[in-house]
Nucleic acid binder design. Sequence first.
DNA 1: AACTATATTGGTAACGTTGTCATTTATAAT
DNA 2: ATTATAAATGACAACGTTACCAATATAGTT
Lengths: 337, 337
Amino acid sequence: MDNTARKPTLKDVAALSGVSVISASRVMRDAPNISHQLRQKVEQAAVAIGYQRNRIAGSLRGKTTDLIAVIVPSMSNDVFPNIVDGIDDALKGSSLRLVLGMTKYDDTSEEAILRDMLTWNPAGVILSGLEHSDNTKEMLADFSGPIVQVMDIDGDAIDMAVGISMQEAGVLIAQHLFARGYRRIGYVGAWGERPTRSLKRRLAFEAELARLGAPIIASVILDQASSMQGGADGLKQLLARNLGIDAVFFANDDLAMGALFYCQTHGISVPHDLALAGYNGLEICHSITPHLTTIATPRYEMGHLAGTLIRNQRNGAASPAQKTIRMAQNLIVGGTT
Amino acid sequence: MDNTARKPTLKDVAALSGVSVISASRVMRDAPNISHQLRQKVEQAAVAIGYQRNRIAGSLRGKTTDLIAVIVPSMSNDVFPNIVDGIDDALKGSSLRLVLGMTKYDDTSEEAILRDMLTWNPAGVILSGLEHSDNTKEMLADFSGPIVQVMDIDGDAIDMAVGISMQEAGVLIAQHLFARGYRRIGYVGAWGERPTRSLKRRLAFEAELARLGAPIIASVILDQASSMQGGADGLKQLLARNLGIDAVFFANDDLAMGALFYCQTHGISVPHDLALAGYNGLEICHSITPHLTTIATPRYEMGHLAGTLIRNQRNGAASPAQKTIRMAQNLIVGGTT
DNA sequence: AACTATATTGGTAACGTTGTCATTTATAAT
DNA sequence: ATTATAAATGACAACGTTACCAATATAGTT
């Protein structure tokens, strides 16, 4: 349409409605102590000339923006889209908006993204996991707004943390497999275990198995991204070693599903010949037959809570007494173990 | 750490390095024609006092931010996370950053999000689909930056469009099912067909079937979100009508997978008793046995191209001659048809 | 040496809003 | 009617940067 014309500003609204600029400003942002009369005049004028607020200008004066920096590893992933969905829903109805960056599980990249995002003076920062580079930690320490680390709570939070215990997850699965009578247990991971969360899970898993007297037999950590194909490949590698493995814990459901399909097409009876367990509790676990044994993680809920925490502090609420919030994860026993 | 101290500004950097503010500014944003000497002095000073750019201030002067508004229906979804991943990758290395909003397939919500995002003066807008409310269209028309509509190209683009032909998809599947000999064909959709893309697919599918002389027998459009469970439910409803249906096209792979699992556990032989086809080409289609017949869509690539188009225009490139870019989608014939 | 073109630096004035303080007007209390 | 108090409005400056234009230094030409 009319791209040449200058965008209307508060000045224009003020001029048209015959009030001062600052009064127009007050109306536009619902400040207190405005007469009904004035409000009407201004609103009418604003609509008439199609006035749109300029948050940039407002933020410059106000020191901080309504942007929330959200840094996650990737979107092509089982868990982070749900988290982001949760965050966005929690922000709904507020003036806060989410700015997204993806690290691809790379610390240097995380650092660069955070550095860039901080130049926007965000109202808060949400990032995943508790492990970060020194530079990242330093930047966060200098940041004055609320910070929420999601997913992981096994470690020290910089400000707030919302997550599940990876430690607990590993123990849960180890105990379950042991209780079921499996004694020759293996593990398959991916991403070269760069997400330290899966590493924490595996270590706890191994420690618990050892404690129970059935130490882990073998592990395969794929370097590639997690995928169903990877799960099949990992399992194949594990079985090729002929160690008599009777159960395998996978770093996530994708890998486990791929392995399950592999078994189904290669005459390996699950769980009779081999038991399988995954992690995350994706819908497909309960849709397939047999149902996949897994641990359901509250992904959406973690995101939602993280968003809510930021939002509350934005609204002047004190930082919560409980800075680290542990969410529940549930072992879902399917027919694969 | 030290939250009380005022953040260092360009003025501080300039003072310390003994140059003018504007020169310091030039160094910080890599402007041309800077002597090595000056650059060194300024960079050194910036590091020394821990200077961080304030993009807000810069954007106010510069009229537009380095933010790209991205509006999608949802993240808990098969397609949009991949698109967002593609966009982000395309933006990597530039100063552009992605601001995300989710509509939940609601036009009013889309409108509100866009209105809000425009107050940040974004450098570009990416949104999904070609159908929008009048208000949304009006706001976009008034927006002076590049706009890319992703996913769909069957219709008129506001500025640029990157997508696949839903029309073509419907025809492809219809022809495939017909060629395979199926004549009593049904359809299952979800979300109350609010994503008009699935509607377009179905209409083209039905039209082609009619043209071929095997008009569609029945359809079920679920109101709920798309899910595997939904696919099973939809199929169940369809079969309950006892219409002798021999093939079903599903709005997406999730639904189709759910239906496939349902068949497998209810003694329905696929494809002998019933053929199934999905849409999207998720990895699971080729992992499961039988492989699911589907259409592979270039989700990541669409996002990447959308991001690249915005980025190019940001860099001063002329708007491309071809404003609507049709991407390829491939029928992948599995064992379910 | 005089002159032109180019590279480098600086000064000033916005950008559009809102925090702070001042002023006016309305309302309540004597 | 008068004073005290609160509500409503306004003026001004400042937020930190960069666009624009001017000035100076340097290199290249004849």
